[in-house]
Design a protein around this nucleic acid. Structure first.
Length: 846
RNA sequence: GCCUCUGUGGCGGAAUUGGUAGACGCGCUCGACUCAAAAUCGAGUUUCUUCGGAAGUGCCGGUUCGACUCCGGCCAGAGGCACCA
């Protein structure tokens, strides 16, 4: 019998074809239905879909299918974040063209996604490496330039002196270039920036209105934007100059024992001119990576310039250091060092023998308490002249007021957020549409010259930017003077590409980036789903870009994503070997983990087992879903992704559960086969219980799916399945079986379609279950009429009692006191207190 | 180092948000069916126990009649830290 087993290898493809032929998931912008835009973060086409993608897109898919069943016109599109470094790496390693490599990957991954049966509107697909896409991006960039939101300035990059190329942070390993192994240097380059700081206040304020964003994401963004108020003031220096510094803790000014400037601060530069030791120290600071993590964990080093700074209150001379932990990008690039109340300053002062003074203490009496580490707690000012006895807050205000009235400083707001550097010295990205002319300077490319496309004939045999050394590409004429000029050879950060792709999904006009009317119909995105790793950068950039477009009058809203859901990552341990100081990673599929350790299947030799971390291409700890679909079918894979783990939490990958999911698919299939509309009830009481279970499940699954609590919805479906299996044939049972088909259809759409058809619904209603309505529930059936209450003595459970729902307090108390186990414990003593929570418990306190 | 999370049986996790800890699933054990296997079905499965109970949600302490849930302090792991996407 063919229908005793569900055969995904037949059914999956069959229904995928049926949906495609019926145009089931085609989003019609002229539909009278209410609209819903469900979007998952589009993937980088790395080559293969991995489990993180499957998890992400399955969640979105369930929601999209559910919304459709609830009567929405759903836009659920897919595309490709197709520019980026891995394509260039592949070009260098395998000699393939980044474009060809990317296109091939897209084709493979699209085929993989199609096998999983996602309810996507493929007619809206595009890749960011399409000239039709990035040409419009160039136009938008020029629009922002005209609005004054784009500028150039010098900024630091990682420079590999052997390969003569700029390295991404990821390519710097232990301060060395990943290919050359050369010690990386910091180098300044003139680069393009977007003025995200113009929107800092607005981006911060906007978080308040994002009710359906996770608090943790809003908090992370808030901290990232980092609004702080403090004092900007100037030290008079012994060389007659003045040095502006910024501090968020002016209340600790009496504890200042040194002043420190960044290595690239003008003062440091001029010190280097007169002093070769200073120059050497600055050179030393240039070594190592540029990341905040590296700077902050590196040993605190300084160089005493010999210059003195005059303390504005005490007149004491403070030594001025050049220090490797001061950032030129934040504040004024110079700080006052207060070792008593800042841990970095404390470490620095300890190392260089500088005074450490307590100026904040829990109470005035504790002024003399020694410090073994920086005290960053609250308290009152001590050892601080006129500030003594003031609270931290009062002292801040008092210092600011004195500085302002005496004219040597002022209270200011400083942001941690820096402008967005978008220049990349790489080939595989959107060319920045500017032209460098010796006579006219930097000139925007005329809009009618867009798209400025990438040349195809590039080579990756030598490191560095192929655009820069291409024989002809950069040569052009100046749009202003007509003279010979050169194109900008930097390309845009790929975060620019992902900052507006969601607008392009609304429609794809040829002559403009997006159609305003279509955007108005679909946007903002109703539900955006993606990895928590994008909590700050991508989401902040997209919010900024949307605001910037609103600012220049191209959009009518500021926030692109109404609701955000950040899923946890699919994680796996890593397998690696180190040879010649380089680490090679291996795929889980290449590794035999059956013994105690792990060995490579190829040579039987052990590999090192690394930590359980997010699946990523660079660490090769990815699992390919194709094998799982081959073995168990798309529905089992989808079900597995939704089961068990709460979606916001990380999911450590294991193969163990998938088999059970495959069994459940068959179990449901057998149950669905028992659908019998003619079945008659024999036991009305029993029927009512099953009917109640069905209606409770309908309500609960809807609620769970809307909250994206898929693991809970899955558990409900299991429970109803078990109840239906155990029930005798009856009308209620058939109703439950039909209900289960509908409830499980967003999660296991192929199985549901097959069962729907077999049960005759497709013929009767003339449609697909994907186009059916979500079942209604009867609110009257949700309420139970009996509840089990806990009987506790001193908070410990002693027994339970079944009572009618809504039994009043007095009666509950009487039942509990009369309970034999309670009587045994009380043994005649009378309780001190009895706490009654109706429908829940009675607690007897002795 | 900084910011944000997470921590519950052998495993993934549930717990109506302060009210019966371990729902549901995986795995395992035993049983039924079978010549046998697979599949399927049934029972059991936190730990200890003198079988009365006792302990138990990363660790230490606190609030409460009652704490996985709230508060304080630690520990461990993950994500992000501006050129991975």
């Amino acid at each position: 019998m063919t229908d005793t087993r569900f055969d995904p290898s037949q059914a999956d493809a069959r229904w995928q074809r049926a949906w495609e032929e019926a145009g089931t998931f085609h989003a019609d912008s002229n539909s009278p239905r209410p609209k819903s835009y469900v979007l998952e973060m589009f993937p980088y086409p790395s080559g293969r879909i991995h489990m993180g993608h499957v998890r992400n897109y399955t969640m979105g898919d369930v929601l999209a299918r559910y919304k459709k069943m609830r009567g929405y016109e759903v836009l659920h599109p897919m595309g490709w974040d197709a520019f980026g470094m891995p394509a260039e790496n592949a070009a260098m390693e395998k000699g393939v063209h980044p474009g060809g490599w990317t296109r091939e990957n897209i084709a493979n991954m699209k085929a993989q996604l199609k096998r999983i049966g996602f309810a996507l509107d493929w007619s809206r697909e595009f890749a960011t490496c399409d000239p039709e896409y990035y040409g419009h991006e160039q136009a938008l960039f020029l629009d922002l330039y005209e609005a004054g939101l784009v500028y150039r300035k010098e900024s630091t990059v990682n420079w590999d002196p052997v390969d003569m190329t700029v390295l991404a942070n990821e390519q710097v390993i232990d301060g060395k270039g990943w290919r050359s192994g050369a010690e990386v240097e910091k180098r300044k380059l003139s680069q393009w920036f977007l003025k995200i700081t113009d929107f800092a206040e607005d981006l911060l304020d906007g978080l308040g209105a994002l009710e359906n964003w996770p608090d943790k994401v809003k908090l992370m963004q808030e901290n990232w934007i980092g609004k702080s108020s403090g004092l900007e003031f100037s030290f008079e220096l012994s060389n007659g100059e003045s040095l502006p510094v910024y501090s968020t803790r002016p209340d600790t000014i009496f504890g200042a024992s040194f002043v420190a400037v960044a290595a690239d601060h003008p003062l440091a530069q001029s010190a280097a001119m007169n002093n070769c030791d200073a120059a050497k120290f600055i050179e030393q600071c240039k070594r190592g990576g540029t990341t905040a993590a590296e700077l902050e964990t590196a040993e605190k080093l300084g160089f005493d310039t010999g210059i003195g700074a005059k303390h504005p209150f005490t007149g004491k001379h403070l030594p001025v250091f050049i220090a490797n932990f001061v950032l030129m990008d934040y504040g004024t690039g110079a700080v006052m060092g207060v070792p008593g109340h800042d841990q970095r300053d404390f470490e620095f002062a300890t190392k260089y023998g500088l005074p450490i003074v307590r100026v904040i203490a829990a109470s005035p009496e504790a002024a003399g308490e020694p410090l073994s580490e920086a005290d960053t707690g609250d308290g009152v000012c001590v050892n601080s002249g006129f500030l003594d006895g003031m609270s931290v807050e009062a002292a801040k205000a008092a210092v600011n007021a004195r500085a302002e009235s005496e004219g040597w400083g002022r209270g200011t707001t400083v942001w941690r957020l820096r402008d967005w550097g978008v220049s990349r010295q790489r080939y595989w990205g959107t060319p920045i549409p500017f032209i460098h002319c010796d006579g006219c300077g930097v000139v925007p490319a005329p809009k009618d010259s867009l798209p400025i496309t990438l040349p195809d004939d590039v080579d990756f045999k030598t490191p560095g930017n192929p655009l820069l050394r291409h024989p002809t590409w950069k040569h052009t004429t100046c749009p202003k003077c007509g003279g010979a000029a050169e194109r900008e050879t930097d390309t845009l950060d790929t975060f620019v590409d992902s900052s507006w792709y969601f607008l392009r999904f609304a429609s794809q006009p040829a002559d403009k980036p997006f159609d305003r009317e279509e955007v108005a119909k679909w946007l903002p995105v109703e539900q955006y789903i993606g990895g928590i790793e994008h909590a700050i950068l991508h989401l902040l950039y997209a919010r900024f870009w949307t605001r910037a477009l609103q600012h220049i009058g191209q959009l009518d809203f500021a926030e692109p994503f109404g609701s955000l859901f950040t899923q946890g990552m699919v994680t796996h341990e890593t397998y690696s070997r180190r040879t010649d100081g380089r680490t090679t990673y291996f795929l889980p599929a290449e590794v035999d983990r059956s013994g105690n350790g792990a060995v490579l299947r190829d040579d039987g030799q052990p590999v090192e087992i690394g930590r359980v971390i997010k699946m990523s291409k660079s660490k090769k700890n990815t699992v390919d879903p194709d094998n799982i679909i081959d073995t168990y079918g798309a529905d089992a894979a989808r079900w597995f992704m939704l089961s068990d783990s709460p979606p916001e939490r990380d999911l450590p990958w294991s193969e163990a559960g998938i088999e059970g999911c495959g069994r459940f698919v068959q179990r449901l299939w057998r149950l669905f086969g028992q659908y019998d509309p003619a079945a008659q009830s024999e036991d009305a009481q029993y029927d009512k219980a099953l009917s109640r279970k069905l209606h409770q499940t309908i309500a609960a699954v809807a609620e769970d799916v809307e909250a994206l609590n898929f693991n809970k919805a899955v558990a409900r479906i299991y429970e109803l399945t078990t109840a239906a299996e155990k029930a005798q044939p009856s009308a209620a049972r058939s109703e439950a079986i039909a209900g289960l088909m509908l409830l499980s259809s967003p999660m296991m759409p192929h199985l549901a379609e097959e069962a729907w058809e077999r049960a005759g619904f497709a013929k009767n209603s003339g449609g697909l279950i994907a186009e059916a309505n979500w079942p209604e529930y009867d609110p009257a059936l949700l309420v139970e009429d009996e509840v089990t209450i806990a009987v506790q003595v001193n908070g410990k459970l002693r027994d339970t009692e079944v009572v009618a729902k809504g039994t009043d307090r007095a009666e509950l108390e009487a039942i509990a006191v009369a309970n034999t186990k309670v009587q045994a414990i009380l043994s005649g003593a009378s309780p001190k207190k009895i706490i009654v929570v109706p429908d829940r418990l009675v607690n007897i306190v002795t």
